[in-house]
Simulated assay, not measured.
Amino acid sequence: MSLTANLMKTGDAKDGAGSEFLAFTLGSEEYGIDILKVQEIRGYEAVTRIANAPEFIKGVINLRGIIIPVVDMRIKFNLGTPTYDQFTVVIILNIGGRIMGMVVDSVSDVTTLSPDQIKPAPEMGSAFNSDYMIGLGTIDERMLILVDIDKLMSSGEMGLIDKMAA
């Protein structure tokens, strides 16, 4: 997949001139997460559902002999009913040594943002908890909602994932 090759060559992009984010979509919005947390990107495949798990935890998959939990971010962020098509992908994350999958509608690219392109997260009284936002990344007319994936995936309800994977 060309995106994977692109991910690998971005490490030498700009010597610390900014932070690199993997851009992905959920519904009509574009989000970004720290590229250093991304282990790989895979096409969506059926998951094994776990009884009594919260709805946003789709289930688990076997990744080369490791059972990893998969979270559907559209359900997690309350963005309507997810659809799974040829663009749907699972981003495999490594967060503090914990491997997990995150289902998103699609991924687009890796973007380098300089500190002056990242604006503070606005206070929003919506379903999206701004505690999980780093800020908003702006590139010309494009805007990325930058997600603090460490904080999101280590929140209290995500602790359920640890229990499921055990």
Rank of each mutant, 00 (worst) to 15 (best):
L79D: 05
K58M: 08
D109I: 07
D85P: 00
A127S: 12
D105R: 09
F77D: 01
V110D: 01
Y44R: 04
V70G: 07
Y84C: 10
Y84H: 13
A46G: 08
R142L: 11
T83D: 12
I91Y: 02
A127T: 12
V110S: 03
V107A: 11
I139G: 04
N52W: 01
P122G: 11
G137Q: 00
V47F: 07
L79I: 09
R64T: 05
D72M: 05
V60E: 00
D131G: 01
A51S: 14
S114D: 08
I41V: 14
A51V: 13
S106E: 12
F87C: 07
G97M: 09
V89L: 11
G135Y: 04
T112K: 10
L79K: 15
L63K: 00
S130M: 07
M100Y: 03
V89T: 15
F77T: 09
G96N: 13
L63D: 00
E55C: 07
I50D: 00
M124I: 15
F77W: 11
I118N: 02
I66A: 11
V107W: 01
Y44M: 13
Q117D: 12
F87Q: 13
T81I: 15
R64L: 02
P122S: 12
P54K: 09
N62H: 04
T112D: 08
G125C: 08
P122F: 12
G137L: 00
S106G: 08
L113R: 00
G97N: 09
V110I: 13
D116Y: 06
K58H: 06
E123L: 10
I139V: 14
I57E: 03
Q39D: 12
K58N: 11
I139R: 10
F56P: 03
N94I: 06
D116T: 10
N94V: 06
F77A: 11
R42C: 08
K119A: 05
S114W: 04
S114C: 08
V60H: 00
S126M: 08
A121G: 10
R98W: 01
P54S: 09
I50R: 03
P69K: 05
G97W: 04
I61T: 09
V103T: 10
T83P: 02
Y44P: 06
T83E: 15
R142C: 06
T111P: 04
T48L: 11
V71G: 01
P82Q: 04
M73S: 13
G65A: 02
D131N: 06
E45T: 14
T111Y: 10
N94W: 07
L136K: 08
Q117K: 14
R98S: 04
T111A: 09
A51D: 09
T48D: 08
P120F: 15
K58L: 09
V110M: 02
G125R: 14
D140I: 09
M102S: 13
